[in-house]
């Protein structure tokens, strides 16, 4: 090929894109699990469990994501270094915990939107509290949480850019590297387009889901 520099840069860009996708998908999955568990604990747990889940939400929701990522990067550092060698792992953990706090609040409001008499009916049939939640409350809560969760997942994709602050080689970081090599601004335009290729389909999927799960009360 006649443009080895271009090839190399395109390859790097592709890797950055892939990292952003993996970070987004991984953190989304993890934050959904965290959010559902913590929200359930917040609504149905004992007083101690409740205060822990509240503290989690308030702590991670009220400090900047970049600061949290820096702390995690330092915490994960091996003994002979003062920062982690795996910034992508640190970013995945940080994004999951941070987004999980928001998911918790969304799922909690979803749970509270379900008529408590639904739990009464389920428990009266002999279902345990956990079964009542799993088969009766959460499926109904899902319907109300899909639109706000859609917003959160789009925000999450965009927040992956903050991981460049701890040197995770995702899209933005990669664009910076290419810019410093070539002196061109074009990588940043490519970055914008690349984010759109993720967020626009995501928005479409969310609105599809919303329509599919809609049913009259």
């Amino acid at each position: 090929m006649g443009f080895p520099v271009f090839d190399e840069n395109a390859h790097l860009f592709g890797q950055g894109y892939l990292t952003t996708v993996v970070l987004s998908a991984g953190a989304l999955a993890l934050s959904l699990v965290i959010g559902t568990v913590v929200a359930s604990a917040r609504v149905w747990g004992g007083p101690i469990v409740q205060s822990f889940s509240r503290a989690y939400v308030e702590f991670f929701r009220n400090t900047p994501l970049l600061v949290q990522l820096l702390f995690i990067a330092v915490l994960l550092a091996p003994r002979n270094l003062n920062v982690t060698r795996e910034p992508i792992v640190a970013a995945l953990i940080g994004l999951s915990i941070y987004t999980g706090a928001y998911v918790t609040e969304v799922v909690r409001s979803g749970i509270l939107s379900v008529d408590p008499r639904q739990i009464e009916a389920a428990r009266s049939l002999g279902l345990s509290q956990v079964e009542a939640l799993r088969f009766v409350v959460l499926p109904q809560a899902v319907r109300t949480v899909i639109p706000p969760l859609g917003n959160l997942s789009i925000a999450l994709v965009k927040n992956t850019a903050i991981a460049s602050g701890i040197a995770a080689t995702e899209l933005l970081k990669v664009a910076g590297i290419i810019e410093s090599r070539t002196g061109l601004f074009t990588p940043y335009i490519a970055v914008l387009v690349a984010y759109w290729t993720l967020t626009l389909p995501l928005a479409w999927v969310v609105s599809r889901l919303e329509r599919r799960l809609a049913f009259a009360r």
Binding site: R117, E120, A121, A122, S124, L125, G126, Q140, F215, R217
Partner: peptide, 15 residues
């Protein structure tokens, strides 16, 4: 509760 069926005023079916 397995052995006690309950019917409520507001039906409380699972929508």
């Amino acid at each position: 509760r397995k052995d006690i069926g309950v019917v409520f005023q507001s039906f409380n079916l699972f929508p």
